[in-house]
Design a protein around this nucleic acid. Structure first.
Lengths: 245, 245
DNA sequence: CGTAACTTTGATTCAATTCAAAGCCCGTGG
DNA sequence: CCACGGGCTTTGAATTGAATCAAAGTTACG
């Protein structure tokens, strides 16, 4: 399929292998995994990696760039379910019904590793660590979605955006990028869509955070001046434990 | 562990096996699964099946009764992430980090089948269908969470409650219960918590739906008089496709 | 360098929350 | 058997956070 010459980077040297499927594998296992991976040529901005209804064949690990995933409702409404950066694995939604359920779209020029599912499955019969790792990644996704549910149901606009910025910062940090300065590859509209806010609200909040000296905003560029104050914004609710248990 | 005499029902005779893990298994495979399952004695109302931090050992299939799952934030806020009925499998959140991440609490006297994870895993090495089925169930959960995200971000209170009632109706139907009349095992407060609404809003909407002759409410008992009108409530938005793709 | 897409800012509106107060239901114990 | 109390539900009135509506700015790139 892919020519190993052109885009050949091996899991062994990949700077994101500590975040990706290889994390739990030993050298030999990683070698096996590496052999089934197909390196795809670059995707350009707005290219679709998966679309709903398309036959599920592979999972994809983001190698460079960034993606957004979104679903649509019958009436055309869109909901961005997540943003993906190097090391993230996408496509699990397709396991249900053998068809991808969401769009996965490149937000900039990006590269992915394609992991053909049938080969992964065969391998996982032999490798308990791989089997476990796949379940673990899905479990992580479920837990993240549950946290987001709490965020959307119980938090104010300000708290949501603070959470979003902290989350980005943490993710960039774990990838070896600066946690204090980064570029938003997504638009204000996309941030709002994901967080259940309007563009205007996102814009106003960024401006407000800047006035409060918490961040510096220059277009797509964000500098976090005080991650502490940002974190404080999350927990400022009074604990008014509602009946539930 | 469990005495096979007391609560012995086998997957083969279980009326929910078409909704549960056995769905994809043949007779022999179902037999093997059946052998690793431990039948737990009944849980009573408010008993916790899992709590966050507890070591992950098993998945649980609901056999009778109903459960709610919820997570909590540091400040004590709670978020109900889902309700579970017979045939549903819970506990996948524990695969990440080997610890359960959420509470799973019985909303009434209930029974579950316990599926020890290490045994399931060993089995799944041999049985591709089982391997696939587990991933599929998790994938379904991810997709449901994504739909809920859309519901919470883009829909009005009325649409959320309509969706909730239709969802319950559909689930009861697939379990062989009446889709037109059922009892809510959860309180108004719990419905609101899950849907991102207050008790008062839920109550007002149920009253309004009743006045509109869509449902009949009598305490916990719900009769759906017109599922069609209820469904219409979902799609009444004008398709004002926002920029996203 | 023109134009379409994105962002910001301001004014106004509104759906749902919050606050407040009954009412109801059901289990429990006298 | 009935009175009591706590939890749940309903209803109403007032409030508000974020949406909507409107209109400039700004950016990017073909």
């Amino acid at each position: 399929m892919s020519k190993p010459n052109d885009f050949s980077i091996r899991c062994q040297n990949c700077s994101f292998n500590h975040l990706c499927i290889p994390v739990a594998l030993n050298q030999t296992e990683m070698q096996s995994l590496d052999e089934i991976i197909e390196r795809k040529r670059p995707l350009h901005k707005n290219d679709q990696l998966t679309i709903p209804g398309q036959k599920f064949t592979s999972l994809f690990a983001v190698r460079t760039g960034s993606f957004k995933s979104y679903i649509t409702s019958p009436d055309g409404e869109q909901q961005i379910t997540g943003f993906h950066f190097p090391g993230d694995v996408v496509g699990f939604d397709g396991l249900y019904s053998e068809k991808y359920q969401s769009y996965t779209q490149a937000m900039e020029t990006s590269m992915v590793c394609e992991l053909p599912y049938d080969k992964l499955d065969t391998m996982s019969a032999q490798l308990p660590t791989l089997r476990k790792e796949m379940l673990k990644i899905m479990s992580t996704e479920i837990n993240q979605d549950h946290s987001l549910m709490m965020l959307l149901n119980k938090r104010t606009a300000e708290e949501r955006l603070a959470h979003f910025l902290i989350n980005l910062s943490d993710r960039f940090k774990s990838r070896g990028f600066s946690p204090a300065e980064f570029n938003l590859t997504m638009t204000r509209n996309e941030i709002g869509n994901h967080l259940g806010l309007t563009v205007e609200t996102v814009s106003r909040l960024l401006t407000r955070f800047q006035k409060e000296q918490i961040i510096k905003v220059d277009g797509k560029n964000i500098q976090i001046q005080s991650i502490e104050i940002l974190r404080e914004k999350l927990g400022e609710h009074v604990a008014n434990k509602k009946a539930c248990g």
